[in-house]
Design a protein around this nucleic acid. Structure first.
Lengths: 297, 297
DNA sequence: ATCTTGTTTTTTATGTAGAAAATACAATTT
DNA sequence: AAATTGTATTTTCTACATAAAAAACAAGAT
């Protein structure tokens, strides 16, 4: 097989949605317009129109494109068919290494992973090359990939850099004029934290999303692509950490919400020094929590 | 064509060297030992032995491997044939973008690069994926790669992080016990700087190598893989910067040698505060120098 | 004359084939 | 029996083929 046709399938689904929004007996716009709408080429638009006509959803002759019937659930492609291969590999791969709690030094074979994940070896290969930038895996030329693994040292070094970046960003943040957009966003985040806190038992699972947004807001004020990029790694680690380590999950999240709020509130009343101390403490807690879950030296 | 046989060719050349070191009429060790010697498989060793026998350089029958004649220059494979594809692409690629002074936003097509560099599209593709971790290029899915380029912003952000890492490492460095290996290395580097300074007109071209070693020595005391990794990018940028921007090269290098020595000497006599100030100043100079050479906003 | 569609060409994405290299196992020599 | 070689199998690497998607071009409609 060659290239996958997920662009086509994704566009087809988007087009079905679009037809629904237009209603029955409507006319579709010119091909060029549709291509621009979804940022794809006219070739793909025409392939979609072809299929729509085949399915008797529209009548298509030249510039005549009239809706014959509204699409139903069954007309859509499955979500799994539209996702890009890389998006398919990531969770599978992370499940494999984090979920499997593999020891550092474990050998990873492209062909084996490809078989496990049901994708081609080249896709796996490209994913691993991309993933290797995080420093968790390494290639032995002509041999295999080796899992450096999420060791204690790795976690410590990760947090050393994270703290440098976030504290630097924090200092930039507090210097922003009070009418800056970021202050508004911080206040809004504070409200969301309080909403979550109101029913922490029922909503604690939503914390990771909030945690990510809080820290990204801070980091973003640094305006540094390398710091942003580094936070991708932090986020990846935390995402899968939260996902597979469920012990004391509720308490951990409740504590973190509390800590975030102490920072947000201190900043809200202009007490930057206290805010900084609380922020440092929060980073320390995060470090301890993560280190506690590291199974390898 | 399939896999390249550069491992074989490289091993063959290494084996010729080895035979020369053994002298005439010597016997080669067991296959397993040779495989271990060059960290390759026995299959490759046997392929090499096959060729050696064919060329009548050795007589090979079972475990009998006697040298018949000493190899000559002509027996070796060309250096270009033994270099890994990736090593072949890097200088070509950097020449292409830095040497060509391409504007940010320039479109890079895999097929075009492959044709230019005389390698396969897949090799180029893998190189670009790996290179993309530096943030200088970006992939537009289903389209092409775009050169984000070495802009003023990029250089500024690069230096912000570089300064954070290096100053942090510096503070760790001065805390090291005086009998630590790194202090000895620093003193040795000081001598090398002075040697270079003695005849700066004749030796200034050697400075980039020294610059790299000086900064890597500092960075290494931080013991942080992310900082080390980041310095790879800094080194890459500087390497090609030094390579293509020759204006005022001698003066720049002479100044930098002077600055390095001020840091090294201050530290040598235990004056850490002055050393730190000088080190900061040196980083500032480096930033200014690099920014002066940025052609794009 | 401009906009839109029909057709062709170019480029990208990804599975596959086949050689290279590694690895495993069997046979042989010491 | 241990070490080494011979042979077979497995895995990796990379050029290539081909479908998808984009882009360019030509023709037709308004």
């Amino acid at each position: 097989m060659a290239k996958t046709n997920r662009t086509y399938k994704e566009t087809y689904n988007a087009c079905l949605d679009y037809i629904l929004s237009l209603g029955a007996e409507a006319c579709l716009p010119p091909e060029k317009e549709m291509a621009a709408k979804w940022s794809i080429s006219r070739s793909t638009v025409r392939a979609v129109l072809d299929h729509l006509a085949e399915e008797k959803i529209i009548h298509w002759k030249g510039r005549e494109k009239t809706v014959l019937r509204l699409p139903a659930k069954a007309d859509y492609f499955q979500a799994s068919e539209t996702r890009p291969t890389a998006d398919l590999i990531e969770p599978a791969f992370m499940q494999y290494i984090v979920g499997g709690d593999l020891a550092p030094g474990t050998v990873l074979r492209e062909s084996e992973l490809a078989k496990n994940f049901g994708v081609s070896a080249s896709s796996v290969r490209e994913y691993l090359i991309r993933f290797s930038r995080f420093g968790l895996i390494e290639k032995k030329p002509n041999r295999y990939w080796v899992l450096n693994g999420f060791t204690r040292d790795f976690a410590m070094e990760l947090f050393d850099v994270r703290e440098m970046f976030e504290l630097r960003a924090f200092d930039t943040f507090v210097q922003l004029p009070r009418d800056h957009d970021s202050w508004k966003k911080l206040a809004a985040l504070g409200d969301e934290h309080r909403y979550l806190q109101e029913d922490i038992d029922g909503r604690y699972m939503q914390f990771p999303r909030l945690d990510d947004r809080f820290h990204r807001l801070i980091i973003s004020t640094f305006h540094n692509r390398f710091a942003d990029d580094f936070y991708d790694l932090v986020a990846l680690i935390f995402h899968y950490h939260y996902r597979w380590n469920k012990t004391g999950e509720k308490e951990r999240n409740a504590d973190a919400v509390e800590e975030h709020l102490m920072v947000i509130d201190a900043l809200g009343v202009g007490d930057f020094d206290v805010g900084r101390i609380r922020f440092r403490e929060h980073l320390q807690t995060a470090r301890r929590t993560l280190l506690a879950s590291v199974s390898w030296d």
